[in-house]
Computed example of a mutant assay.
Amino acid sequence: MEVSSIAAAASANAAAQLQAEVSVTVLKKAIDIQAEAALQLLEALPQVPAAPVGTAGGVIDTWA
């Protein structure tokens, strides 16, 4: 191999590695943004009032 082809291969390898690192960073930021949006949606849900214990409908068997 000639020196110029070795240098070109090294440069291409460095560029590919940088592109991979940038892609991972962008993916992590996108996941963080989605997590924030999901948390905001969960916080926006209205609170469900608890039924008084001992009254009709106070206990529901969800495993049946």
Rank of each mutant, 00 (worst) to 15 (best):
E2G: 14
S5F: 06
S5W: 09
S5D: 15
A7M: 11
A7F: 11
A7S: 12
A7E: 15
A8H: 04
A8Q: 06
A8I: 02
A12H: 08
A12M: 06
A12L: 10
N13M: 09
N13P: 02
A14V: 01
A14T: 07
A15S: 14
A15R: 14
Q17W: 07
L18I: 08
Q19W: 03
A20H: 05
V24M: 00
V24W: 01
L27M: 07
K28G: 00
K28P: 00
K29S: 05
A30L: 02
I31M: 05
I31G: 00
I31T: 07
D32Q: 04
I33R: 07
A37K: 10
A38K: 09
A38F: 04
A38Y: 09
Q40F: 04
Q40N: 14
L41R: 14
L41I: 05
L41F: 09
L41V: 08
L42E: 14
E43F: 04
E43N: 12
L45R: 15
L45M: 13
L45N: 09
L45G: 02
L45E: 13
P46K: 03
Q47I: 12
V48M: 06
A50C: 05
P52I: 12
V53R: 15
V53D: 15
G54I: 08
T55F: 14
T55S: 13
A56F: 14
G57Q: 12
G57H: 10
G58K: 01
V59E: 15
I60T: 10
D61M: 00
D61R: 06
A64P: 01
A64D: 00
